[in-house]
Simulated assay, not measured.
Amino acid sequence: MSQQEGLLAHKIAIQSTKNMLKQLSGIDVLKIYENNENQELNELYLAYCSRYDYNEEPYSQISYDCSEEEIYQWLIDIMELKQEEYFFLCNQLWCKIKMIDLYDAISSLWKSHKNTKGFLLAEIDLSRIIDCGSDSRDEYNYLIDIWERQK
């Protein structure tokens, strides 16, 4: 890929992320991080991904058969989410968001990807990553993984 093609791909990714973020409700978008702007956040994410084990038990799970309301309340309670700032991974770009209406934000984040349900957040102090959705470890339940950063 030429330098010009790389720049164009990057601009398309940024615009795609902005378009996706505009469709989310219940949040304010404070910043989109480009070009490894937040190296510590990237390192945290790499540490989280490198430790991932498909045999690991999830932090919590809930049946696919539960109502959306039950799922949203489960996410809020288990992930200990509040109306505050988080880093949100959107289209492989980190975004700093503030949850304004917690229930609406969770509903919107949960449905933010067309083909799957779930989202990944990092605490502002980079103390933990909280990840939810479905994966190959369980065919019948949505899962939450909470990874605490080792200092």
Rank of each mutant, 00 (worst) to 15 (best):
E5T: 01
F87N: 11
N19E: 06
S108G: 04
Q15G: 04
G6V: 04
Y59L: 01
Y140F: 13
N115V: 13
F119K: 05
I129P: 14
K151N: 07
M99F: 09
D104A: 13
D53G: 08
D138G: 05
Y33F: 11
K114H: 10
A9M: 09
T116V: 10
W74A: 06
S136C: 12
E139K: 09
I106P: 07
L121D: 15
I27T: 02
S136F: 10
K151Q: 06
S134D: 15
I62D: 02
S108C: 05
N91G: 08
G6L: 14
M99W: 02
M79W: 00
Y140V: 08
C132G: 11
I97D: 05
Y86Q: 09
L44K: 07
E148P: 06
N141C: 13
S67D: 02
N115F: 14
A47Q: 11
I130N: 13
D145T: 13
D104G: 04
R128H: 12
Q3K: 15
C90Y: 01
I12F: 04
Q73N: 08
F88W: 12
D138H: 09
S134F: 15
N35W: 01
L41R: 02
K117M: 08
E85M: 14
N42Q: 08
E43H: 09
E37V: 00
L120C: 12
N35Y: 03
Y140S: 12
Y64A: 05
I78H: 02
N38H: 06
E40Q: 15
I32N: 05
N91K: 03
I78N: 09
I144K: 04
Q73Y: 00
K11D: 05
Y86A: 07
P58D: 03
L93C: 05
K31M: 03
P58H: 04
K98E: 13
Y86I: 11
N91V: 03
L81T: 06
K111P: 01
S134G: 15
K98V: 08
A47P: 01
W74V: 01
L30Y: 00
E68V: 10
C95L: 02
I106F: 03
L120T: 15
G118I: 01
D101H: 15
M79E: 07
E85N: 09
A47V: 11
E70G: 05
V29N: 03
D125K: 10
N115Y: 14
F88V: 10
M99R: 02
L44H: 06
E80F: 06
S2G: 13
F88P: 10
H113M: 04
S112Y: 01
L41W: 00
S67E: 05
K111L: 14
N55D: 12
C66N: 09
Y103N: 11
F119L: 03
E80T: 08
L121H: 11
E70D: 12
S63M: 02
D104V: 14
D104P: 00
Q92L: 12
G133N: 10
M1T: 04
